[in-house]
Amino acid sequence: MRTATEIGYNTKVEGDVIVTRVDAALNWCRKNSLWPMPMGLACCAIELMAAGASRYDISRFGAEVMRFSPRQADVMIVSGTVTYKMATAVKRIYDQMAEPKYVIAMGACASTGGMYRSYAVLQGVDHVLPVDVYVAGCPPRPEALLDALIKLQNKLAREPVLSTLKKVAA
């Protein structure tokens, strides 16, 4: 079920009061305060750090609070090559995050295994996690990651209040 209610108000008519639906207000709060859990595994983590630094400010989107504890984070940004050895750890950390949780697969390695079609690299983190946004690039520029964040925010804005539990693509 998608909702399309935006928060909007006309200052001349309504003054300081916003009248909206609960889910629109909740989603606005959620999307503008997405705290990432940086699963920084390889080179994409450097671009993630660059996105968090001052030039490509991720703080503009409310996401500068990089919580390394899954209990305190909303979105896991898997940045880097996920090896088979690390895959179970990534899944375990994802399981520890509290609902509602989202995943951004950043870079070629996290999306599809990247240039590593080998015995040791998981061919895409979507084998173990449900991914919401994929970012192409090796590594993607910080602006590409911010674009992915904006897409995730738009996806969030359309969620109904009682979100359904996610299932892993088997």
């Binding site: 088979y84 050895k85 895959a87 179970t88 295994g113 079609r117 080998s118 015995y119 040791a120 690299v121 061919q123 084998h127």
Partner: peptide, 21 residues
């Protein structure tokens, strides 16, 4: 041993699948 690997499974530790080459 093929570059793409062979499917294995050690439960609770790690699994592998053959990568599509």
């Amino acid at each position: 041993f093929p570059l793409g690997g062979k499917p294995t499974d050690v439960p609770e530790v790690a699994f592998t699948k053959a990568a599509p080459l």
